[in-house]
Simulated scan of single mutants.
Amino acid sequence: MPRAQLDVQRQGLNKWEMHKALLNGLSNKTDCSSFRIPETKLGTPGNLADMLRNHQTVFIKPVNAWGGSGITRVDVDTSHPVLYRWHKQGDKQVLHIDSVGKVIERFLSSYTAQPVIVQAGAPLATLDERPFDIRVLMQRNDEEDWVYSGAVGRVGGAGSVVSNIALSRGHVMDLKELCHELNCKQKVQQTLSENLQETGYAIAKIVEQYRDFFDIGIDVGLSSNKSLWLIEVNTDDALGGPSHELFAQLPNRDLYDEIQNRHRATRNRRGQALLRELF
């Protein structure tokens, strides 16, 4: 896998370049001790057709979008005759398509002006038939080391393709509350917490090779046996960064205040360092 390329103007990695960075960092393996990565390819008609032959669910994601916008979920119904359900985020209507060729036609007409990736749907659990994931936030501390700032559950709205809160009108959940809803035993909760932290540090170590990021938001889903599947990695860039406001929606705002204070301290410290270099 070629080395990932940083978008110089945006000062970040788009979805495809991030995937390349992660695979390179993991020596081209799609799993490590704490998480797995779904099969992901560039969005071409041939790659989409291959993915639909090999997976029951495939996601189409614009590489330069964020917040869940523009994502389409394609489900394969293997009953006879084979049927494909096309559900684009934000559309109320789910299209039923009767051939791969017609899916490709829809794909070409829907994504003509933007590069995309096609990604296999991981075997993720749902909560009350709604998609959910866990957002892990990594930040720099006063010594410029990475710290695990915390994690929060995100539950998508009814009928949503994604778990993004703003886009799907979903809600956040404290991690303990989420584990309770999923009937996790204490030992499972402890293992999950350890795996979330291990995942955060592993990914931070990989992406810092491409730029001196200071905020990393990592979205992971849970399978039925509580193993982690990586969904997306977001970093600070010229357009913004991972949302801190998710943590503001928790009943206790102490964690949010810590995150904000750490963020401001890092920005001030780096701003002062830049001024010293200039003057």
Score class of each variant (00 low, 15 high):
53 R>E: 15
53 R>Q: 15
53 R>M: 10
54 N>T: 12
55 H>P: 09
56 Q>C: 13
57 T>H: 11
57 T>Y: 14
58 V>P: 05
59 F>I: 15
59 F>M: 11
60 I>G: 12
60 I>W: 05
61 K>R: 09
61 K>W: 15
61 K>M: 13
61 K>C: 08
62 P>D: 09
63 V>L: 09
64 N>S: 14
64 N>H: 14
65 A>W: 13
66 W>I: 08
68 G>Q: 02
68 G>E: 00
68 G>D: 01
69 S>R: 13
69 S>C: 06
70 G>K: 01
70 G>D: 01
70 G>W: 06
70 G>M: 04
70 G>L: 07
71 I>E: 00
71 I>N: 00
72 T>M: 02
72 T>S: 08
72 T>Q: 06
73 R>C: 09
73 R>S: 02
74 V>N: 03
74 V>I: 15
75 D>P: 00
75 D>Y: 04
76 V>T: 01
76 V>H: 04
76 V>W: 10
79 S>F: 06
79 S>G: 12
80 H>F: 01
82 V>D: 00
82 V>M: 08
82 V>A: 11
82 V>T: 11
83 L>I: 04
84 Y>E: 00
86 W>A: 04
86 W>P: 00
87 H>A: 05
87 H>C: 01
89 Q>K: 11
90 G>D: 09
90 G>F: 07
91 D>M: 03
91 D>P: 00
92 K>L: 05
92 K>Y: 07
93 Q>D: 06
93 Q>F: 05
93 Q>T: 14
94 V>W: 02
95 L>P: 00
95 L>G: 02
96 H>Y: 14
97 I>Y: 03
98 D>V: 03
99 S>R: 10
99 S>M: 12
99 S>G: 08
100 V>E: 15
101 G>S: 01
101 G>F: 08
102 K>D: 14
102 K>I: 11
103 V>W: 08
103 V>G: 02
104 I>K: 01
104 I>F: 04
104 I>M: 10
104 I>W: 12
106 R>G: 06
106 R>D: 08
107 F>W: 12
107 F>N: 10
107 F>H: 02
107 F>C: 09
107 F>D: 07
109 S>F: 01
110 S>F: 13
110 S>V: 13
110 S>N: 12
111 Y>R: 05
111 Y>N: 01
111 Y>V: 06
112 T>L: 15
112 T>C: 07
113 A>Q: 14
113 A>S: 13
113 A>T: 15
114 Q>A: 13
118 V>E: 05
119 Q>W: 02
119 Q>R: 03
120 A>D: 06
120 A>C: 03
121 G>E: 03
121 G>Q: 01
123 P>C: 04
124 L>D: 04
124 L>F: 02
124 L>R: 00
125 A>G: 01
126 T>M: 14
126 T>Y: 04
127 L>A: 10
128 D>W: 09
129 E>I: 03
129 E>S: 05
130 R>G: 06
130 R>K: 15
130 R>L: 07
131 P>N: 00
132 F>T: 06
132 F>L: 10
132 F>R: 10
133 D>R: 05
133 D>V: 00
138 M>H: 05
143 E>T: 12
145 D>E: 13
